[in-house]
Design a protein around this nucleic acid. Sequence first.
DNA 1: TCTTTATATCGTAATATTGCAATATTACAA
DNA 2: TTGTAATATTGCAATATTACGATATAAAGA
Lengths: 106, 106
Amino acid sequence: MGITKTADYTDHQNRIAVLAKALGHPARVAIVEYLLEADRCICGDLVGRLPLAQPTVSQHLRELKTAGLIQGTVEGTSICYCINPAVLQELSSFLGQVRSGCQCGC
Amino acid sequence: MGITKTADYTDHQNRIAVLAKALGHPARVAIVEYLLEADRCICGDLVGRLPLAQPTVSQHLRELKTAGLIQGTVEGTSICYCINPAVLQELSSFLGQVRSGCQCGC
DNA sequence: TCTTTATATCGTAATATTGCAATATTACAA
DNA sequence: TTGTAATATTGCAATATTACGATATAAAGA
């Protein structure tokens, strides 16, 4: 089917899944890594650095933005993107919780 | 196209993407959450708890296992699954790195 | 105004994912 | 050996994702 039955899960489960999915592509990992180095970027900075055409880069930026992982502010002709630490924290704290609370029972 | 050009990214970027993608579905988040509570589970524990048929649950378990997030050991007719903390750590430390090193530049 | 620059959106092809019914496999018990 | 219980695999339909060329939009400069 290809359709996820989101209505049958908790908001939290859906939220974590959305955030994780946003990082579930190497290009988007690369974008986040670049932002970690550069603190900010415009789409054009990534085109040329990534093995993707401009529309594809733009599309990946939009997905990161839709998930909330990055935010963009208009600056003339450009849009300045940067990481949203608060949203990153959501995913990070979920993983921390699992990691600290888990215990292999097999 | 639907095909990701993995060859054009670093091993680390691909690795993080694979782990994140494995968590990129609410059913798989729910499985990890259940494992956090129960420490272990067999497929049958999840069927009935999740709004999915047995083959679909099995498929999600396989994806988590392929990524390395969980491991399964055979126990007679059942397979006992549990979280793999070391692999979880990989993703967790990536996020920690990003979170601690990032600074909004816009 | 016309052009250039920067980015987004549209349309589309190729491929991947999701979900399930049907079936196969495997281990164990009677 | 036959049956049963627990999972996995197969095959398929519906939908989502990925990627890019073509085009649209919007700001700024000549």
